[in-house]
């Protein structure tokens, strides 16, 4: 099996005096979508933010394509090819949609073909291209946040609960876009509470509890075993399908 795009080895992260991650071990295979699942407070978002460099790990290694990026600045990690779509969208509300997108293209001007593709998967971005991003609706902001990460080919996409609080129609649009991105061979590590979406997109799954990975394996295995779901997460995916 080829080397994973991302490998976490014994990653421990503290936030102030609280120990949040207690030694996370995780492989994210290249060209696949890995779903990070678990109860609220299990450490999923902290894991993504630690990979992005927004929290510095106290211990452990974070290997991106074989290079340890643990402790590096977020800017350096972003320039190494990692893009984060944060839970709170993280757009620049005072800048226009166009400016948000231009800013996200850190390696140079936006490729017109890629932009056309983004306009196809997220039509509102074209409509509101020159408008301040702060004027967009919640769903449109999420589209912009996701499109910002997708504006360039990245080594790794970190996506934190993209469907949170959104209407079903918007979730479908996002799911289509992420499926398109997956079809392009992207490597994605995604936190998602919507199990229907997680099952539809995920190739691999990793379940977290209390700052550790308690189970990792193919999504098909987890999706097909209601007992395992019940034991790991205290609920069944079928109930949320």
């Amino acid at each position: 099996m080829s080397e994973p795009m991302l490998r976490l080895e014994g990653v421990r992260t503290d936030i102030a005096q609280y120990h949040i991650l207690h030694g996370v071990d995780l492989d994210v295979p290249q060209g696949q979508v890995t779903m990070l699942l678990g109860r609220n407070g299990a450490g999923k978002t902290t894991t993504l933010r630690t990979v992005m460099g927004l929290w510095k790990p106290r211990a452990g290694r974070i290997m991106l394509a074989g290079r340890n990026i643990a402790g590096q600045d977020p800017a350096a990690i972003a320039q190494a090819g990692v893009a984060l779509v944060p839970e709170n969208m993280g757009i620049f509300a005072n800048l226009t949609v166009e400016e948000n997108m231009i800013l996200a293209a850190v390696s140079g001007p936006i490729d017109p073909a890629r932009l056309d593709w983004l306009f196809t998967v997220f039509p509102p971005l074209k409509t509101f291209w020159k408008n301040p991003a702060g004027n967009l609706s919640g769903g449109q902001k999420q589209m912009l946040a996701t499109a910002r990460a997708m504006v360039e080919e990245r080594r790794l996409y970190l996506i934190d609960e993209p469907s949170k609080g959104l209407a079903p129609a918007i979730v479908s649009t996002l799911a289509r876009a992420l499926r398109d991105l997956k079809a392009k061979g992207a490597t994605i590590l995604m936190v998602e509470q919507n199990f229907k979406l997680a099952r539809a997109l995920g190739d691999q799954a990793a379940v977290m509890d209390d700052g550790r990975i308690v189970w990792a394996g193919p999504m098909a295995t987890l999706a097909g075993d209601a007992g395992l779901q019940e034991r790991l997460m205290g609920l069944s995916m079928e109930g949320h399908a």
Binding site: P74, G90, F92, E99, I102, A104
Partner: peptide, 23 residues
């Protein structure tokens, strides 16, 4: 482009750093 990054930093320095700009 420099001015645009500055405006992004003014709005949220952490976000700008996460996008890839050394604040």
């Amino acid at each position: 482009p420099f001015g645009r990054v500055l405006q992004a930093i003014r709005e949220n320095a952490f976000r700008a750093e996460a996008v890839g700009y050394r604040v």
